[in-house]
């Protein structure tokens, strides 16, 4: 595995070692197969007391609280929280628009860094990791598993992700909501260039299936500033029609459209209670992930 880390362009060992100090936690209880760091919806054998409940025939007599029996002459069973691992599903948008980048990195490269780092961190803390590449449909899907060999497959998949074709992320997320049976931590990395109203449906769907959803919204600085000094022919990276325009003429309206989109998207993520992180791809991804991990640490505990 050490060999793999040295050869993956999207992984930086120093960043990994620094981020390893902060756990990747789910905000909602997970249903894992083995013990782990994450809260479970079931009672378990951890050291953290959960509640008392009345003894019913069949309960393990070893879990009776004899002190409570001595005080109340009734049988109570003492229950503790269960810790489990989670299934991290990394959803990477590999549509054509993810190939855009005005700086040293384009969106897909940035997405690789985030996905690869999160996958490694999850694997290191014993969580199962899966990956789904989404474009016009599900381009590639690797189910979540917890093993070093599987992680290598995940990295290979991330590395081989190529931006191409139109986006059907909404349909893909709906499909994942149905196909991932157990609760999972779904991390979607995309530019989300689609109507926020459509996204709202799939986020609600994921939430309904009790998945913990986190979004990394990747935007290029040029897409925000829209600073051009000469007439431009804009070629749609997803195969749509090209537009010839004088940027100074439409910059104002472009800004208004972008502002409205971001406002609507913010409303959608608030209503859907998904973890939303807007990222400009010229930002340092380590800082982005660090803030992400810390924020999740602070909001842990929901069950």
């Amino acid at each position: 595995m050490l060999t793999d880390r040295q050869t993956r362009s999207f992984l930086d060992p120093q960043v990994l070692s620094r981020l390893a100090a902060v756990p990747l936690l789910a905000r909602r209880p997970m249903q894992g197969n083995v013990s782990g760091r994450h809260s479970s919806p079931h009672r378990g054998s951890s050291v953290e007391f959960a509640e008392y409940r009345k003894y019913v025939p069949g309960d393990d007599l070893r879990r009776l609280d004899w002190r409570a029996y001595g005080r109340s002459d009734r049988f109570y069973v003492k229950e503790f929280e269960a810790d489990t691992n989670l299934r991290l599903i990394l959803v990477i948008d590999t549509s054509g628009s993810m190939g855009f980048g005005s700086g040293s990195l384009n969106k897909i490269e940035y997405a690789r860094k985030i996905a690869g780092t999160l996958g490694y961190l999850a694997s290191q803390q014993g969580d199962a990791v899966g990956v789904t590449c989404a474009a016009e449909g599900i381009v590639k899907h690797i189910p979540a598993k917890q093993s070093p060999a599987h992680l290598r497959l995940i990295f290979d998949t991330i590395e081989e992700a190529v931006p191409n074709g139109p986006t059907q992320l909404v349909q893909v997320l709906h499909e994942l909501s149905e196909t991932v049976r157990q609760r999972a931590f779904v991390v979607v990395i995309s530019d989300f260039f689609m109507p926020p109203a459509e996204l709202s449906g799939c986020f609600q769907h994921l939430r309904f299936r009790r998945h913990d959803v986190a979004l990394f919204h990747l935007l290029d600085p040029l897409e925000i500033s829209f600073t051009f000094h000469r007439p431009m022919r804009f070629v749609d990276m997803e195969g749509g029609p090209s537009i010839f325009a004088e940027p100074s003429d439409i910059a104002e309206r472009y800004g208004k459209a972008l502002e409205q989109y971001l406002s609507e998207l913010k409303q959608v993520v608030l209503e859907s209670a998904v973890d939303y992180q807007r990222v400009q791809i010229n930002e340092d991804y380590e800082q982005v992930l660090l803030q992400f991990l810390i924020r999740r640490t602070q909001t842990r505990g929901l069950r």
């Binding site: 054509g96 628009s97 993810m98 190939g99 855009f100 969106k107 530019d191 260039f193 689609m194 290029d220 897409e223 804009f234 070629v235 749609d236 990276m237 997803e238 749509g240 537009i243 325009a245 439409i250 472009y254 459209a257 972008l258 989109y261």
Partner: peptide, 8 residues
């Protein structure tokens, strides 16, 4: 090549 065509 441009990604944010919906705004454009």
């Amino acid at each position: 090549p441009w990604a944010a065509m919906m705004f454009l």
